[in-house]
């Protein structure tokens, strides 16, 4: 089903450039953009990674600002190119893909369609589960529950999560007899990456789904996807 759907996306005569919104370094899949590139010979395919953009950016920002930042980079890299394009959002980047589509329109692009592949909408429990998963992997024991509502103050929440993860990661490094200064830098980088990921999820919960001026299609549920997701099909992000 999904191979056919992806082929249809890729082969659409009016689809224009294909822009995927996904997490290529983090996803369970091999990369939606790569799959589309294989499926659609001759079509221009770009990939946007919002979590890396957040991680490398000057600040943690809301979806609207992040989308504008991403689209400005896209525009800078392909000046004077065709404005027709199709936005493809993967999994928990689905809601953000709406914002990207809106930002493209605001910049003069003409999105032909917004396609959501296995789109999901994270909730507060998703944020906590992702945090708790890493916490446990770093050796923290016992059950845990959010000490406060995570959405009341996202800035305070992300600060608390970062401090907690940094503590767990440093304890883990010490426990592994790997307590060099370089390891400390690695801890900071890992925690920074996770902070960006958790912030992205927090914003997905806090954000609305803005209207877009093009057709929106939900391609498939995760079980239908033929993206070589196994054995982690239940945990794609």
């Amino acid at each position: 089903m999904s191979r056919i759907a992806l082929r249809q996306i890729a082969a659409g005569t009016d689809a224009g450039c294909l822009l995927t919104v996904e997490f290529p370094g983090d996803s369970a899949g091999p990369g939606l953009a790569a799959t589309l590139a294989e499926t659609a010979p001759g079509r221009e395919v770009w990939r946007l990674d919002p979590v890396t953009t957040l991680d490398l950016g000057p600040d943690l920002c809301d979806y609207e600002t992040l989308a504008a930042r991403c689209v400005a980079e896209f525009d800078r890299l392909r000046p004077d190119s065709e404005t027709a394009l199709t936005v493809v959002g993967y999994c928990s980047a689905a809601r953000f893909a709406y914002h990207v589509t809106g930002a493209l329109t605001a910049l003069g692009y003409a999105p032909r369609a917004l396609v959501l592949v296995a789109g999901t909408v994270p909730d507060e429990r998703t944020v906590w589960t992702e945090y708790d998963d890493l916490r446990r992997k770093l050796g923290a024991a016992g059950p845990s529950e959010p000490p406060f509502p995570l959405l009341d103050d996202p800035d305070a929440t992300i600060g608390w999560l970062r401090a907690e993860l940094t503590g767990h990661a440093r304890a883990f490094v010490d426990d592994q007899d790997f307590g060099t200064a370089e390891a400390g830098a690695a801890v900071d980088e890992i925690v920074g990456r996770y902070q960006a990921w958790l912030w992205f999820l927090l914003q997905a919960v806090a954000s609305d789904t803005p209207p877009v001026g093009c057709p929106t299609t939900d391609v498939a549920d995760p079980g239908d996807l033929d993206l070589d997701l196994a054995p982690h099909a239940a945990r794609h992000v």
């Binding site: 370094g25 983090d26 446990r136 992997k137 980088e189 794609h236």
Partner: peptide, 13 residues
């Protein structure tokens, strides 16, 4: 960049 989520969208062991 280290891959905290890289191996199948999960936290590292």
């Amino acid at each position: 960049i280290t891959p905290p989520l890289a191996a199948g969208g999960r936290a590292p062991d």
